[in-house]
Structures are given as C-alpha cells and as structure tokens.
Write a protein that binds this DNA or RNA. Structure first.
Lengths: 219, 219
DNA sequence: GTCTATAGGAGGATAGAC
DNA sequence: GTCTATCCTCCTATAGAC
C-alpha cells in the first residue's frame, strides 16, 4: 500500500543528494553522507546508481525536466498578451529557483561543469528548450514595442539575474516571489512596477476586446 | 637582477592555482597539481602558504583587489557624464572578466562558497566596495532620467549578467569587449545601441558646454 | 535490496635532509 | 627554499553474506 511519501528509493536518493550537494558542493558530499541521510549505507546507492556521477546526472535531469514542466504549465495558464506571458514565465522561473525544486536547480547551476562530458551532451538539448521559450517571449515583447534593445542581449541580462536571485533574496512565500517577479520584469523593460502594472491592465483589456470581437465575428 | 617574469614564488603559486582551479574546480585541483605546474613539489607550497585554503583565499583576494583597482582607474579616466561613466565601468568589468584577471575572477565567482567562513568575512568588505561604485552610478543614471526602474533591481540584473558573459562569449580583443559593453549598457536602459551612442554624444556635448561656461564664469 | 568489509587510490599536511 | 618520504584520512567502488 503506497502513500505519497512512499517514494521510490531512486527518488529518495535524488532528493537527499540534491539537498546535501546544494549545501556542501558535489565533491564534498560523499556517497556515505547521502546514503546516511536516508538511513542507508553507501553500498545501497551503488545498487541503484552505477556511479556517483550517475546520481549527479539524475539530480540535474530532475531539475531540467521538472523545471521545464513547471514553466510550460505556467505559460499554459497565462493570458495571451506578451506582457502577461512574460510575467508568468518570470514568476514561474523564480518559483522554480526558490520553491521545492530549489535544491535540484541549485545543483544544476553550480555543478553542471562537474558532470562528465557525455552527461552534459545528454542533458543540454533539454536545457536549451527553456532558452527557446524565453527567446520567443522576448521577441514578442519586442514586436509589441515593450523591448527596444536586442532580445538576445536582454535574455543574457535576464537569465543569470533570475538564477542568482537565490544569492541575495529569500522568498519563502508565493507573494514575495510575485513581487520580485514584477520588479524584475519592470527592470527588464526599464519601467517602474506601477507602469508595468498599468501596461498589463491595458494589455488585458485589449486582448479581451479582441477575443470578444473575434467571437462576434464567428457568430 | 630581476626581470618582469621574475615573479615572487607567492605570485607564481597564485597564478598557477588560479589557472588550474578555474579549469577544474578547487576540490579537483590538488596541491601537487599546482606545484607541478610551476615545476615545484607540494612541500614547497606548504612552506609559502599554511594551508590549501589560504592559497585559495590569496587567489580570490587578488581578484577582488586587482579587479577593484582596474574599475576605479577606468572611472578616473572616464568623462564626467553618467552615461559615459556607466559605459566605462561596464567595459572595465568585462575587461576584468575576459582579460588577464579572468582566471582569478572566475575562481572568485565559482569557489567563493568553498572559502572557510573566516576568509569570507575578511574578503566581503572589499567585495562590497564595488557594489557601491555601481550603485552610485546607477543612481546617477536614474537622476538623469536614463533609468526608470528601481536602481537596486537594475544592479541585480546587470551584475550577474556581466559575470556570466564568460559562459557564452569569448572576447579576446579589446574591440569585441567594447562592443559587448555597449550592447549590455543599451539593454540595461532598454535602448538600441544606436540610441545609446547618440545619447552619449549629446551628453558629451552638454557636459563640455557646461565645462566651458564654467570656465568663462571664473574668468 | 541492503548490509558489512575492504580493496585501491588520492589528497592534505608534516618532518627532516639538503 | 625546496625536496623526498610518509602519515593519516577519506573517498569511490566492489564482493559477498544475508
């Protein structure tokens, strides 16, 4: 009889590893440490994973997969306007970095270089998916006149900034994350938060009006 | 008789360590590796540094000190306008990250957490100096109307982005670095590079006119 | 599946010769 | 100052019992 915390051993190892590696770094976290954290011994880890590097790859793969899923879901729920979608993606990104996935994501960022080259080759295509998501959104913002600068350069401003928020901000609740997301979106467009909000309101009105007129056309 | 490459042993160790640690990471770089890179043995390192951690601290301290010096010098040479000074600082930062100091700076960013806590306490005040430099400049940009967003948030956008340029750009020569600096400055203000350049020209004209009229007043 | 025991190697640090 | 030799610890990974 399985309950929600009756996770598979594999998942338990990934969880414990992500926490410890995020805290102390990959090279300073021994297999013994990780196994002990879930009341097992190192031999058991080598039954479930061929090597320690394989465990690291599994941790990072979880960060890439689950993170991407959260982002796409956030976009699915978002309004249709480019500003609203942008804010939704930035909010989701901050949620990934500061929420339940924070440890796996931290490991992804900090220990990527420690992965064997073959593992990086396997994971990179998945990691690139997210870049495309963001690029499309920034391009839409440029088309709508919100971004005047080169969208690719804006991405290079925005992405490291989002990932580094953990270095200077502690955001335990959803509200504080939403506030920071607004601040960062506003700064990306070089606007105040108030201006961003009023632009969002305008965008929503326009897109709803367009939606209604589209409906009436099909009547 | 000393020549330019007759560096002190200490400096040689710092140089070799920064290169190897930047490449492989602190924990994967052994004292034996570092000593061997300058044709010495590990025992010699422990004569010049009490521990391996002390060597790491020396590497990072060099990054902080020399980096800050380069930045302040760049500001000293810059024109007086806030835009020009901003571009000068960003250019200098990119120079630090991609130039001769790239290895020590890389180690600073990537291995900061590996420093013993006491070492971080010693170095942090020096590292904060630079943040103040940038904050003052962003505040001036806001006063001149070039930044509408919150300056602190803009710093949180800009700083990680500058440090991460090494992850996606290779900039061997000064020209390519200047171009990237312009792109990033423009994106920070959400303007095209062309707009930034014309704003810079205007600023220079105005400040020179002010300078001349100031002179004539004192005549 | 999980444990114990251990092989086999590498790393930081020290002692003492030169 | 630098080297050699070595101590001691810790790590990944494996073998085999249960």
């Amino acid at each position: 009889m399985r309950t929600t915390n009756d996770k598979s051993r594999i998942a338990e190892f990934i969880d414990a590893a992500s926490r410890l590696i995020a805290e102390k770094g990959y090279d300073r976290t021994s297999v013994r440490d990780i196994a002990q954290a879930i009341n097992l011994t190192s031999g058991t880890m080598f039954y479930h994973f061929k090597t320690k590097d394989d465990l690291l790859e599994a941790v990072i793969k979880k960060g890439v997969d689950d993170g991407f899923q959260l982002m796409t879901e956030a976009l699915r729920r978002a309004e249709s306007g480019s500003l609203a979608r942008f804010l939704a993606l930035v909010t989701a990104h901050i949620g990934v970095v500061h929420g339940d996935l924070r440890h796996v994501h931290h490991v992804w960022l900090r220990e990527w270089d420690r992965l064997p080259k073959e593992a990086r080759v396997r994971l990179r295509p998945l990691a690139e998916q997210y870049r495309e998501l963001l690029d499309n959104l920034l391009f839409a913002l440029a088309q709508d006149g919100h971004i005047k600068a080169d969208p690719a350069t804006v991405r290079h401003l925005l992405l490291p900034a989002l990932n580094w928020t953990t270095a200077w901000a502690t955001l335990p609740d959803q509200h504080s994350r939403t506030l920071l997301a607004e601040q960062i979106c506003a700064a990306t467009l070089n606007q105040t938060v108030d201006t961003l909000r009023s632009l969002l309101r305008k965008e929503t009105e326009v897109s709803r009006a367009a939606f209604l007129s589209g409906n009436s056309l099909t009547d």
